[in-house]
Design a protein around this nucleic acid. Structure first.
Lengths: 147, 147
DNA sequence: CTAAGTGCAAAGTATTTGCTTAGGA
DNA sequence: TCCTAAGCAAATACTTTGCACTTAG
């Protein structure tokens, strides 16, 4: 969590530069999301933060993640289901694997994919700033349980 | 639209095999979506179909696309924004490019990507049944207009 | 001190559900 | 005829907004 703290400090600086303030509530959301590999819904963030700040409202969570999203500090993941998940790992766009059975979301690290945007950009003439890659299927754990 | 008609016939057969019926409303939705390269929202489908069936309700559109989605005939695309788009092109999972400026969605055909699920499956042990790949950036057209 | 942020509740919006009537097979 | 589907409206669930009060800088 050391680099998480460094990132948080940087975010605070950038907030202040834009006339925005660091509040205990925002800090709590940052601590929950930044440098963490989890994928949390607004409600899940709310539940966690409430452990320390019982009065915090869900709207504040939404306002904060919306802000962090605009700053490019966190990524919003929308799947076919109901609610959005937030990823504050800070790792450049990385693929996810979603198990259709247990709904677990796993990060995939595949160095081969780093060249993907560049290749597609070159072939198509599109200027690519971001991408998203999701795989759906059955994770090894569920495969085992199914047999 | 010739192969679109063939696909529609096939879908009708499969519907009947499962005790489901072909109605004029469903046929209208099929004609709007199947074999078409557009990406339409439920509302957009509703608007188009209403030209021929003024009485059709939005709920019927949702029920029909939900059915087609379960049958695997169409793909639902959720982006960070509000509503889902439906893709009835019938082409196996293909990447999309979304222009951040004009919001146009373009299909990308890249044969190199067809091996992607197999590779990732092999490397990770996940059994991959589907994937989704979206690129975000600026399309050539908007690039030109920006200069 | 002052402008930005919080908390609450109400509003908004995409989608689903229930129920009655219509209409395929 | 029988049972699925349509149509409408109400319900649901996530997210956003408005406003009075609080608080960071």
């Amino acid at each position: 969590m050391a680099d998480g703290n460094q990132r948080i400090d940087d975010i605070v600086v950038r907030l202040r530069e834009h006339g925005m303030r660091m509040t205990p509530q925002r800090m709590a959301v940052l601590n929950t999301l930044i440098g963490n590999k989890e994928h949390l819904s607004a409600e899940a963030i709310h539940d966690r933060v409430r452990a320390d700040y019982p009065m915090i409202g869900l709207a504040t969570i939404y306002k904060t993640v919306s802000l962090l999203k605009e700053m490019g500090e966190i990524t919003e993941l929308n799947f076919d289901n109901d609610c959005a998940l937030y990823d504050g790992s800070g790792e450049s766009p990385h693929p996810h694997f979603i198990c259709s059975q247990c709904n677990t979301i796993l990060d995939i690290d595949d160095a081969d994919l780093e060249s993907l945007p560049g290749e597609v950009s070159h072939k198509t003439g599109y200027e690519i700033t971001n991408f998203r890659l999701d795989f759906f299927g059955i994770c090894p754990n569920c495969q085992k349980n199914n047999t």
